[in-house]
Nucleic acid binder design. Structure first.
Lengths: 219, 219
DNA sequence: AATTGTTTTGACCGATCGGTCAATATCGTT
DNA sequence: AACGATATTGACCGATCGGTCAAAACAATT
């Protein structure tokens, strides 16, 4: 048996839809938009193919719905960052949050990655619109930190890219990481080591002091 | 017109094969193994579909041939590394080489990425075999550098992953990077900035001195 | 029990998939 | 000019693609 089916004992639309979305996320993340088939999604969900279309309308609508859901999951990241924030604390939180998100939604992360690989045909407006603004505003704050002497003078965009890539690696490239480390999967201990490593190297590399718990600013 | 075709004026097998491989690399890198179609590859190469199969045998054989070609391109990286090497020099070369390879073979890089995203169905033996050994041997040398006090005591595997992810980002995620930076493509100047940034942050983050050209060791 | 609206699903559509094959075209050798 | 070897290509195969549709099953209200 592959996954729990929604064939029986469902109570409402929501449960069926969630089941479909979960199945679709798995299939799309593995094979990308074009490589995924509705039949494979239907099999994964334990439903006939026609039922998928009844609930989701079309393959494209289902795919876009998954993309939007994944984007919304990332919206909470780095929301409350200000020029007065402690860079070390913020960067640590950034790294940790990205790692956790990648582990919580590995299929969603891979889905996004596949979309970018394909040239972002459905996301180019988002990338050069909302996301660009998001990055620009955070970059401006990081720039201020540099000017205040809180950290080295670095291109904030490249710093954000560095943290993105270094953290996403462990969800999107999990097949490579586990293959090389010889593990079935990454456990909590591994993830903690990875967070510690990235915090240490990146913060030190930026000339940022690690946040000291005993001297922690209240907020 | 999309690409130069091999339809006319070819001189031999090699040229036709190279034309097919180039077209196939483009299509596979965008859509992954399952999402790519032989018809799309044929159109890209300017040849009838049957001709692709005549030269390559099957879709899978063509795909595996592309994977092998990409792996062989990476073989030269970090070949001549020893415990006596200067860590700063080696890491800089590592970063720079990976960036250059990613720019020279962007489709190949994306092809590899798509294969990993799909769970590495064709590469799992390579990942947990040759590549694991390659990483282990380099990790052992990095470990010795740490013991010699040449750099901080860090998990060498995670350091290699960091450099991989940070550099590959600019080829595999080029759609995201250019979208956010608002550029058509990355030029030489951008790439030099990226190399400088990564060298500075990662080397400093590892406690490695940057190689000073004026004090350069001869080899 | 009858009626109405919502789900479920198998059958089916034209298009495209990877792959085969035989007919044709081209070429090098004699 | 004739011939065997190699390339090229359109036609075709069964399977699968995304999507439609109507009939059946189910649920809820009267």
């Amino acid at each position: 048996m592959t996954a729990e089916t929604a064939h029986q004992d469902n109570v409402g639309r929501d449960q069926v839809e969630r089941c479909i979305l979960r199945a679709a996320e798995q299939v799309f993340s593995q094979y990308g938009y074009r490589g995924a088939s509705l039949q494979a999604i239907a099999d994964q969900a334990g439903l006939p193919k026609a039922n998928i279309l009844y609930y989701m309308g079309s393959k494209q609508a289902l795919y876009i719905r998954l993309l939007n859901r994944m984007m919304s999951r990332w919206n909470a990241v780095l929301e409350e960052i200000t020029p007065e924030s402690d860079p070390g604390r913020v960067l640590c939180e950034f790294i940790r949050t990205k790692i956790v998100l990648g582990q919580r939604y590995p299929e969603g992360s891979k889905l996004f990655a596949a979309e970018i690989l394909a040239g972002a045909p459905f996301l180019n407006k988002y990338l050069s619109g909302e996301l660009r603004d998001w990055v620009a505003s955070r970059a401006a704050i990081i720039r201020q930190w540099s000017n205040q002497g809180k950290m080295d003078d670095l291109d904030p965009h490249l710093l954000i890219f560095l943290i993105w890539s270094a953290t996403q690696h462990y969800s999107e490239y999990s097949a490579q990481v586990t293959g090389i480390l010889g593990k079935e999967a990454l456990d909590e201990e591994d993830l903690e080591s990875i967070c510690q490593f990235l915090e240490q190297v990146i913060l030190k590399g930026c000339g940022v002091q690690r946040p000291d718990a005993s001297l922690a600013t209240p907020r």
